[in-house]
Design a protein around this nucleic acid. Structure first.
Length: 455
RNA sequence: GUGGCUAUAGCUCAGUAGGUUAGAGUACCAGAUUGUGAUUCUGGGUGUCGUGGGUUCGAGUCCCAUUAGCCACCCCA
């Protein structure tokens, strides 16, 4: 028997971690609800066709595929062998792996909308908080199982949605106390216009992938990469101009207008961008024309949230507009726009910056000491009463030295110790000790409830 | 998926050129203390040295493989 272990990149969460995670989740959920989004949950697995080809070539490789059951049944053998052959060639095969763990929440959402568009009230605004899985190599801030919190609007092209989503980002991070985050915005239409100018639409992906690395590898290396991808010198020069745009949002927009202003897509993109910047001015958006984002279904505004630059961590949220997402599932003309929070990374950032309040770890309010088998019967009766009043409390499980019981309370961060021994029973008063201040007072048994829960 | 670094007690780590019985701090357990803890005193090492092989008279230490974590690439939340 080997040591028990869990799969690479997946984690157990202790009580303290769960409480902190729940704190983040409840803030997000509350804000989503406040903006009129309603919850949705979808299964852990999707049929593999639902997922394949939606996230680009790299994405396909990172999808966790689930081996079919019953492969050992002789009647499936031939299919299974053929499927295995396909897999060995780097393709996927429903005969071998018909299902896969979901990779994000957007595609399952699109599938859901496509399946239920007849019943849904549009615009359909849903939020979804569930784990997703990626067969990526784990490292800091990157896990194979992590939780995404998405809010999307399907069936509305109004830019008011984009504005609201930006405001949601701002409100959530403000409530979490995560100051110094940066909410960047761009528009895929502007990138498309740039691609048009430089080699045509088929270069869109090459160009976006390369310029997205500007922060990391610098201008020269980006241009070099584009050269290798087959762009001409004059085209590279346009990109050089594009990438050297800087200044305030207004200045940058002005510069793009000068550079690409004769392109209808660029005009449209800038219009959309300006609308969002203007109406979501409270959210402190930063226009960043180098922002590209990997998922290739985005068609309009795109968002990305960077953590405060005092920590090294990838983006903690992202999103954008995808005009024809349900089109992938045979339902036309439903436009979607959405955002996602990466709560595992938000957690790591908040932990690193020590932004969690101390009171977070409170569970049990009061520990009743066990002062002996007889005495504890009284304590147990009182514990039961308090529990009926929704006051979380517990009785130490066996008679033990007080030292031990104090330490138990301390470790579990229980704020009060309630001591009921023979003296207390004689006087019908409990000795209640505040473990943070060390002060104690005698509280009559019938006054315990108001003591812990003043109404 | 590619490359690099790391792995010793619950935790943080030391362990020199391969040498007997693997150490420190902290945590923990027992007692001083049969009703008041986080201070003090006394005693206690609680370890498959990540795992599996190999070299050697002898391996925590050297070699190979493997697993996990971290870092870079790729990509991303």
């Amino acid at each position: 028997m080997s040591k028990p272990s869990i799969p690479q990149g997946m984690r157990d969460f202790s009580a303290e971690t769960v409480r902190k995670r729940n704190h983040i989740l409840s803030v997000i959920r509350q804000v989503f609800e406040c903006y009129g989004f309603e919850p949705l949950e979808t299964p852990a697995m999707e049929n593999i066709e639902t997922l394949m080809g939606k996230y680009g070539e790299e994405g396909d490789k990172l999808i966790f595929k689930v081996l079919n059951n019953g492969l050992n049944d002789p009647k499936n053998e031939e299919k299974a062998r053929a499927g295995f052959q396909k897999v060995m060639e780097g393709k996927s095969s429903a005969d071998l792996t018909g299902r896969a763990l979901k990779y994000d929440l957007t595609i399952p959402f699109a599938r859901f909308v496509a399946m239920n568009h007849g019943q849904l009230t549009f615009p359909y605004k849903r939020y979804q908080i569930q784990p997703v899985w990626r067969a990526d190599r784990p490292q800091k801030g990157r896990y194979r199982e992590f939780t995404q919190c998405d809010a999307d609007v399907a069936g509305s092209r109004s830019l008011v949605n984009e504005v609201e989503l930006a405001l949601i980002y701002d409100q959530v991070f403000r409530k979490l106390g995560l100051h110094g985050y940066e909410l960047r915005i761009n528009n895929r239409k502007i990138l498309a216009a740039l691609a048009n100018r430089c080699g045509g639409a088929e270069f869109l992906t090459d160009i976006t992938v390369a310029i997205d690395k500007l922060d990391k590898i610098g201008l020269d290396k980006v241009l070099e990469e584009l050269r290798q991808r087959g762009l001409q010198e004059n085209q590279i020069d346009s990109i050089r101009q594009y990438l050297s745009i800087s200044g305030s949002n207004a200045e940058k927009i002005q510069a793009i207008q000068t550079l690409l202003g004769d392109d209808p897509q660029a005009i449209k993109g800038l219009e959309e961008l300006s609308f969002v910047l203007e109406h979501a001015s409270g959210a402190q958006l930063v226009a960043d024309f180098t922002l590209a984002r990997g998922l290739n279904y985005y068609t309009g505004v795109i968002f990305e949230v960077r953590p405060p630059n005092t920590v090294t961590m990838g983006s903690i949220g992202g999103g954008g507009r995808y005009d024809d997402l349900t089109g992938l599932f045979g339902v036309k003309d439903i436009s979607g726009v959405g955002i996602s929070f990466g709560i595992d990374r938000i957690y790591d950032v908040m932990e690193e910056l020590q932004l969690f309040p101390n009171s977070m770890s409170a569970g049990t309010h009061a520990l009743f000491f066990n002062m002996g088998d007889t005495e504890s019967l009284t304590a147990f009766r009182l514990v039961t009463k308090l529990r009926e009043q929704q006051i979380p409390c517990e009785l130490y499980h066996e008679p033990a030295k007080m030292d031990k019981q104090f330490k138990y309370a301390e470790k579990k961060n229980i704020p009060y110790a309630v001591i009921i021994g023979s003296h207390e029973i004689a006087e019908q008063k409990a000795m209640v000790k505040d473990l943070t201040t060390g002060k104690q007072e005698a509280v009559p048994f019938e006054k315990l409830k108001p003591f812990f829960k003043p109404s």
